[in-house]
């Protein structure tokens, strides 16, 4: 089954991104496909390459990057929401790409289920 995932919050104020990541990992382990993970609202902040968590904490940005690397997961950051929050090509972490909000709607159409995580 194809899952689309929407992440609405940034990496640290809320558990949303961690929950979404663990859901995605579990889905992949069960043999499902992640059609796309779309980052919207403050969720775009998951894609900053400038995040430097303390060494004893998990690195949310790196978790997503590794998932994308290991499983070819498409990580898409909304361009409009990103611009507002300073996420541009200059601040984008490798493994993510910036595109339009249409990519979320398209994921809703193409994926069998959309699962959202937020505040």
């Amino acid at each position: 089954m194809k899952f689309g995932i929407l992440v609405n919050e940034g990496p640290f104020n809320h558990q949303a991104s961690d929950s979404a990541y663990l859901f995605a990992k579990a889905a992949l382990e069960k043999g499902h496909e992640i059609y796309r993970v779309f980052f919207y609202y403050d969720g775009v902040l998951n894609a900053t390459k400038f995040s430097e968590p303390q060494s004893d904490d998990r690195n949310v940005v790196k978790n997503w990057q590794k998932l994308a690397e290991d499983h070819k997961v498409d990580l898409v950051v909304c361009v409009a929401a990103g611009l507002r929050r300073g996420i541009t090509d200059a601040s984008l972490a490798p493994g993510f790409r910036i595109s339009g909000l249409g990519q979320l709607i398209e994921a809703g159409i193409q994926a069998d289920r959309m699962v959202a995580f937020g505040d």
Binding site: M1, F3, N8, L22, F23, K25, A26, A27, E29, K30, H32, D112, R113, M114, V115, A116, F117, G118, D119
Partner: peptide, 20 residues
């Protein structure tokens, strides 16, 4: 349930509504 169970619940339903 664990995360795998979460995935199963989503797969068994027709849609998922996150009450945010």
């Amino acid at each position: 349930v664990d995360y795998a169970g979460f995935v199963d619940l989503a797969a068994e339903s027709n849609a998922v509504n996150a009450w945010l």
